[in-house]
Simulated scan of single mutants.
Amino acid sequence: MMTLIEQPPLPLGWVPRMGEADYFVSDSNRAAVHWLSRPTVWPMPRCLILGPPASGKSHLAGMVAARTGARLIEDADRLDDGEPLFHAWNAATAERPLLMTGRVVPKLWAHRLPDLGSRLAATPVVWLPEPDDALLAAVLAKRFADRGLRVADDVIQWLALRIERRFTAAGEAVDTLDAVALAERREITVPLARAALEHQLSLEL
């Protein structure tokens, strides 16, 4: 009988891998990666990286910042105080460009500075959309690997065909399977995934 997990346990100190080799490029994010790899062709030394939760904004922005020396401000859309962001925007140069990450377009950001709003409206935007099939499978594999879990390819492919095509759905599935496998002291297999996700995510499997 499958043990139901009402609340998955908190991760036990696992740290996601954030190297360049750990970032998977597919058709859905290839244009964004290509644009960000060439800051010398940007129309200004500033760029916004926008995308849904868990879409790899921080991973990609961190790679670009490390490679270019850019200043990085994450979750810029949530900053109530716009003054530091305003000064960072003005201080950006070709030698030290500015990268900002967020989830929504600048007109919806939390700050209330008209001068900053006009600057952000003119700033180039790179969008990271929800994943295609190849990227969803890669995200699932990475999330399992980040936790030190060895999961066979058939499980990854089975999941990628059945969960919603959202980055957060991948995280939810991995959280659930990790918790159930730990509680049951079983390996993560297709039968376990089928039983666990049928209950936890209400999928039509």
Results as ranks from 00 to 15, higher is better:
Leu182Thr: 07
Trp35Arg: 11
Asp175Pro: 10
Arg150Val: 09
Pro8Ile: 04
Cys47His: 00
Arg78Leu: 15
Asp77Trp: 09
Pro191Tyr: 03
Glu172Lys: 00
Arg96Asn: 12
Glu20Ala: 15
Glu95Tyr: 05
Asp77Met: 09
Thr3Cys: 12
Leu98Gly: 07
Val125Cys: 12
Leu48Ala: 11
Ala110Ser: 11
Leu99Met: 11
Cys47Tyr: 02
Asp81Ile: 03
Leu79Asp: 08
Leu136Thr: 02
Asp80Lys: 04
Leu135Asp: 10
Met1Glu: 06
Arg46Leu: 14
Asp27Glu: 13
Arg46Val: 12
Ala138Gln: 05
Leu10Gln: 02
Thr3Glu: 11
Ala183Thr: 00
Leu128Cys: 10
Ile5Asn: 00
Trp158Cys: 07
Asp77Tyr: 08
Glu164Val: 03
Gly171Asn: 09
Val174Ser: 02
Trp14Arg: 03
Leu201Val: 03
Asp178Cys: 10
Gly69Met: 06
Thr68Asn: 04
Ala195Glu: 14
Asp175Ala: 15
Val15Gln: 15
Pro53Cys: 12
Gly56Trp: 01
Leu4Ile: 15
Arg46Trp: 13
Arg186Gly: 14
Phe86Trp: 08
Trp42Gly: 03
Arg38Leu: 15
Leu99Ser: 09
Gly62His: 05
Leu177Lys: 00
Pro106Ile: 01
Leu159Val: 04
Pro191Phe: 06
Ser55Ala: 15
Trp42Glu: 07
Asn90Ala: 15
Gly171Ser: 09
Ala170Tyr: 00
Asn29Glu: 06
Leu149Val: 05
Leu201Ser: 06
Arg119Lys: 09
Ile49Trp: 00
Arg194Met: 14
Ala121Leu: 12
Asp80Tyr: 06
Arg143Asn: 13
Ser202Ala: 15
Lys107Asn: 14
Pro8Ser: 09
Gly82Phe: 06
Pro45Val: 08
Pro131Lys: 00
Glu204Gln: 10
Leu136Ser: 09
Ala169Thr: 03
Lys107Tyr: 14
Val41Thr: 13
Arg71Gln: 14
Gly148Arg: 01
Arg67Asn: 07
Asp80Val: 08
Leu136Phe: 09
Asp146Ile: 01
Thr123Asp: 02
Ala121Cys: 08
Ala21Asp: 14
Pro114Trp: 05
Arg30Gly: 11
Val25His: 04
Ala88Asp: 13
Ala181Leu: 12
Ala65Pro: 00
Arg78Gly: 13
Glu6Tyr: 08
Glu187Arg: 10
Glu83Trp: 15
Trp35Ser: 07
Leu99His: 02
Val105His: 14
Thr176Arg: 01
Val126Asp: 04
His59Val: 07
Arg166Asp: 11
Pro114Leu: 07
Glu130Ile: 06
Gly102Asn: 05
Gly82Glu: 03
Ala91His: 00
Gly82Arg: 01
Leu201Cys: 07
Asn90Glu: 15
Pro84Ser: 10
Leu136Ala: 11
Arg67Asp: 14
Gly51Ala: 11
Met2Tyr: 13
Val190Cys: 09
His87Tyr: 15
Arg166Leu: 13
His111Asn: 14
Leu48Ile: 03
Gln200Ile: 04
Asp115Ala: 13
Val33Asp: 04
Pro97His: 01
Met44Asp: 08
